[in-house]
């Protein structure tokens, strides 16, 4: 029983209850098509247009140049720029720390809030707050809390005797990334939490019960019962967290604008700067497509896990 779950070949809670054979009839397409149409029309079309733009030279402040086709020139420009390499590295740090932080925290808190205790509903609702606060306001509040003079973070740390006087956390190259990451993990964890809580609900209670009757300790119960069941949900959560962190613009832009000295300049920030500060739409969209390709690698690695698990039906 436990062994089977371990193979991780299932969607939440399906171990020994595989759905029957799939129906090979046309209604499947009818059901799927409306959503696909919405996606293709609303996101696909602008995406294609953006891709076409990346093959043209489009300097917004030089309209007299027209928009000549330049093939892959924009890609070469972007790839040659030292800022691009930096942005890849910052993006890697940004995305991976966000991913690990949000998943670990989200999982721990989900397990905590899944156990029975009075006030659990309230706790779940309170945990949702960071995610619900409009992101612009949340980010500005954090920026203020980090302020070297007026910020509560510094005031607290000074009172604890951990630092002597206020530090401009967002203003130093060594601390800016960490400071922005804390905000973003704080804001993103509730989303992971909700997904995992939903996933945990699908685990049949008699499984965990029988495991504890068998004398399994907390870790063993998690390792051999909870985790295998939760794995598909974790894979989805990981994939989505990767995507959303990767594309997170507000947190970094409003706190540091990618600074100081590009210490927090991710690909998304670089892309925005190319488009709205340098007015080079061609290079910006090329950077966007490259961003897309880099992320694709991640998603294929994660996503293959998911697809593989689904293929076995």
């Amino acid at each position: 029983m436990l062994k089977r779950g371990q193979e991780g070949s299932v969607a939440p809670g399906a171990t020994d209850r595989r759905p029957g054979r799939l129906h090979r009839s046309w209604p499947g397409y009818v059901l799927v098509v409306p959503a696909m149409l919405a996606l293709v029309g609303v996101i696909g079309y602008p995406l294609v247009r953006a891709f076409v733009m990346s093959l043209h030279k489009i300097i917004l402040i030089r309209p007299q140049l027209g928009q000549p086709f330049v093939g892959l020139e924009n890609y070469a420009t972007v790839l040659k720029s030292p800022y691009f390499a930096n942005a890849i590295w910052q993006t890697f740090v940004w995305t991976s720390v966000n991913l690990v932080g949000q998943l670990v925290l989200g999982l721990l808190i989900a397990l905590l809030l899944n156990s029975a205790f009075p006030g659990r509903g309230i706790a779940r609702s309170v945990m949702l707050i960071p995610w619900v606060i409009p992101s612009v306001v949340a980010v500005l509040t954090w920026k203020w809390m980090y302020d070297g003079q007026f910020g509560i973070v510094n005031s607290f740390l000074v009172r604890l005797g951990l630092i002597e006087k206020g530090v401009a956390w967002l203003g130093n190259t060594g601390t800016a990334m960490g400071a922005v990451l804390i905000e973003s993990i704080w804001k993103g964890t509730p989303f992971v939490l909700i997904m995992l809580l939903a996933g945990l609900q699908a685990i049949p209670a008699e499984l965990t019960d029988s495991a504890s009757v068998d004398g399994a300790n907390v870790w063993q119960r998690f390792r051999y019962v909870t985790f295998p069941f939760l794995k598909p949900t974790i894979v989805i959560a990981a994939t989505l967290t990767t995507i959303y962190s990767y594309n997170n613009f507000n947190a970094i832009w409003l706190m540091t604008e990618g600074g100081p000295l590009r210490a927090t300049e991710t690909l998304t920030i670089l892309t925005y700067k190319l488009a709205f500060r340098n007015f080079d739409m061609g290079s910006a969209t090329a950077a966007g497509v490259l961003t897309f390709l880099v992320l694709l690698v991640f998603v294929v690695i994660f996503g293959r896990q998911y697809v593989k698990s689904q293929m076995e039906f």
């Binding site: 302020d147 070297g148 206020g166 401009a168 956390w169 130093n172």
Partner: peptide
């Protein structure tokens, strides 16, 4: 100049 001015 105060340290905090770095982020103002």
């Amino acid at each position: 100049v105060p340290e905090a001015a770095k982020t103002w």
